[in-house]
Amino acid sequence: MSEHTDVEETTLTHRVVLLGVAELSGRDDVPAHAGEVVSLCIDNLANVDGDVLGRLSEADVARALNELEDAGLVERADVGDTSAVGKGRPAYVLPMGADALCDAFDDDDRLAALVDHVEAVCE
């Protein structure tokens, strides 16, 4: 992906990860450490229609976060974390609003339940 890739060009895995970061943002739990994003994305698979995604691993989410950062769709935040938990792990924020992201994915039927869930959290 090139810098500033359009959100419409993302894969299903990328979309689930973006919605995970959006949900954490709606909970005011940002910047979100990669481990938090992984855990939430795995939990959110129940809200993805059918088995289109299969099993989502920690490596899949980490790879997607790196690709989304390269594309400019998430930003790495400097958290200066000194605690043992999360130390050295990257943390991410959305450069766009969660509402705009949900609107962009509104026509993806595979994500309808997940988009509704994220919109409810972000209200």
Rank of each mutant, 00 (worst) to 15 (best):
R27K: 05
R89M: 14
D70A: 11
V30T: 13
L19D: 00
A71T: 01
A71Y: 02
A112W: 07
K87V: 11
R27M: 08
V85E: 05
N66T: 10
E9V: 08
N44M: 13
D81S: 14
E36I: 01
D116S: 14
A77F: 12
L56N: 04
Y92V: 00
D116W: 03
S83I: 08
M1A: 11
H117V: 02
D43Q: 12
L53F: 12
V121P: 06
T11K: 03
T5H: 00
H33Q: 00
S39A: 13
D107M: 00
R55S: 12
V93P: 06
T10Q: 02
V93C: 06
D116H: 13
R89A: 15
S83G: 09
P95E: 03
P95W: 10
E67N: 05
T5F: 02
E69A: 12
T82E: 08
V48Y: 13
D78G: 09
G86R: 06
D81G: 12
D51R: 04
V115N: 03
V52Y: 13
L40C: 04
R63I: 10
G97P: 02
D116K: 08
S57H: 11
L56W: 09
T5S: 07
R55M: 13
E69G: 10
S57D: 05
D51C: 02
Y92M: 03
A104L: 12
D99Q: 10
G35V: 13
S2I: 11
V16Q: 01
S25E: 06
E9G: 01
L12C: 04
S83A: 14
R27I: 02
C122S: 14
D6G: 07
